[in-house]
């Protein structure tokens, strides 16, 4: 009985925080300890961080799409290597789905730190008007299409060679994450040529917007993140996901209130069990906050990993005041 109580005392948000910080250390400093997880990591493991523990797949995708062109022209193994990295990425996504975003991503953790700072200052979170939010969700697909289309144009010589990593060149992760390894050079304007100057201006302008946005709004950058779009496209093969039992829902709206991405679909869905939208991070905040037994759950294939429970919510309120 005591064992069960001890187990119940371990809260999911605590485990998540622990995993996030461990993920941050591995992704940011792993290379310094000889840990390198390859080029297919489905989160912002930024290659511009000196001594990082793996490379974000978006960089690999841009690189392989660009260089894959020459591999296709040569008809060679280079294309197989590109497909191999994609297969590994797809496998990692199939296994953990968007846990990569909600539980591992170092840039996600930085956003959570900024949100915690906002709460510490007693500043209220800002909301985005519904119509604007709907329009903004398309930006991540636009960025993803840029990632796919621009590198081959650079390889083919239609665009300047410095367009070869278009997303990295405007990704705020590139300017912010290396600061944690003492690297500030990406906060500078790059005066080499017009292309590098244009990209560095865009990067710094976006970084400024994102820093403020991430302070006032939970997971603001995730609204635009092409990883969410890419992982969502692989949803049919993903084993891990969020489901809802509509008949158990009492309509309290807790799921909508605690969601860092302000997703309404989980609350509104009354028919389908599948409530995993393209913006969901699988952070499990909604499951934790749901007071109805079995209404929401995180599942791995048919296995239920964590489900909503009235007792859990009561315990959270009693013990942690959340």
């Amino acid at each position: 009985m005591r064992g069960i109580r001890a187990m119940r005392a371990i809260k999911v948000w605590k485990i998540r925080s622990l995993v996030q910080h461990a993920g941050f250390i591995v992704m940011m400093y792993g290379g310094r300890f000889g840990v390198h997880l390859g080029s297919a990591i489905p989160c912002f493991a930024c290659p511009f961080v000196p001594g990082c523990g793996g490379y974000c797949y978006l960089m690999g995708l841009q690189g392989y799409i660009g260089f894959g062109m020459s591999a296709v022209a040569a008809g060679g193994v280079g294309l197989l290597a590109a497909l191999g990295w994609f297969a590994l990425f797809a496998m990692l996504v199939a296994l953990l789905g968007k846990l990569w975003c909600g539980w591992v991503c170092p840039f996600g953790l930085i956003q959570d730190w900024l949100s915690a700072l906002r709460r510490a200052f007693g500043v209220r979170e800002r909301t985005i008007p519904r119509n604007t939010a709907r329009r903004l969700t398309r930006v991540k697909y636009l960025l993803l299409s840029g990632i796919v289309v621009i590198p081959p144009l650079a390889t083919a010589g239609i665009l300047h060679e410095d367009f070869y990593l278009p997303f990295c060149n405007i990704c705020p992760g590139k300017s912010i994450l290396p600061l944690f390894a003492g690297e500030a050079r990406y906060l500078a304007l790059n005066l080499d040529n017009r292309v590098t100057l244009g990209f560095s201006i865009a990067l710094l302008a976006i970084t400024g917007v994102m820093l403020v946005g991430m302070f006032f709004r939970d997971r603001f950058f995730c609204v635009f993140c092409p990883f969410l779009a890419l992982i969502h496209l692989l949803k049919p093969i993903t084993l891990l996901g969020l489901t809802k039992e509509p008949e158990s829902c009492i309509g309290c709206g807790n799921c909508r209130r605690v969601c860092p991405m302000a997703i309404e679909a989980v609350y509104k869905e009354r028919v389908s069990r599948d409530v995993q939208g393209d913006a969901c991070l699988d952070c499990a905040s909604c499951v934790e906050a749901c007071p109805s037994d079995f209404a929401l759950s995180i599942n791995f294939s048919k296995l239920r990993l964590f489900r909503s429970s009235r007792d859990y919510v009561a315990e959270l309120k009693g013990k942690f005041g959340r």
């Binding site: 300017s175 500030a184 050079r185 990406y186 906060l187 500078a188 304007l189 790059n190 005066l191 080499d192 560095s200 201006i201 710094l204 302008a205 976006i206 970084t207 400024g208 917007v209 820093l211 403020v212 946005g213």
Partner: peptide, 22 residues
């Protein structure tokens, strides 16, 4: 050189302006 000719001061001014405007 990658980042051979840079202006950190200019970059920080741009970053601050962008953040202030937002």
């Amino acid at each position: 050189a990658f980042y051979g000719r840079t202006s950190l001061g200019g970059g920080l001014v741009l970053l601050s302006s962008s953040a202030a405007a937002t």
